[in-house]
């Protein structure tokens, strides 16, 4: 039935968004080990298969900065003002913890999937 298909697609989209949310934060923090500005960061993520639109990335960057995980600076490059982001010392520490957690979850999930 079309209604059931639509509902199922909507459920999948919502679950996919939930799954992506945490992964995006991890990906952004990892990419910002090297200083980047918004556009190059989006491009780098897209090249690695993680597309992210402007409306998602910039609020995420603001949030991570307000949490003290990122630092930013407006600077001129190629005669244009750009805002560059990079990990703060606290961000480095948090990223390492998150990556350990990610490895642990990944190992558990692989085990669960093998058993299933």
């Amino acid at each position: 039935m079309p209604t059931s298909t639509t509902a199922s697609a909507e459920i999948f989209e919502n679950l996919k968004l939930e799954l992506r949310r945490g992964c995006l934060t991890l990906a952004v923090l990892t990419q910002l080990r090297n200083e980047q500005y918004g556009y190059t960061l989006r491009k780098a993520l897209a090249e690695d298969g993680l597309e992210i639109d402007e409306g998602t990335l910039y609020p995420l960057l603001r949030r991570l900065e307000s949490q003290g995980l990122l630092v930013s600076q407006w600077r001129e490059e190629d005669k244009r003002n750009k805002r560059f982001y990079r990990l703060s010392p606290q961000g480095e520490q948090t990223l390492n913890q998150l990556l350990s957690e990610w490895q642990r979850i990944n190992t558990s999930l692989s085990k669960i999937l093998q058993e299933a």
């Binding site: 918004g38 556009y39 190059t40 989006r42 402007e54 910039y58 805002r83």
Partner: peptide, 12 residues
């Protein structure tokens, strides 16, 4: 800040 950043992204 947001407008400047969005503008820069679109110009890029």
């Amino acid at each position: 800040d947001l407008i400047a950043e969005l503008g820069e992204d679109l110009r890029s």
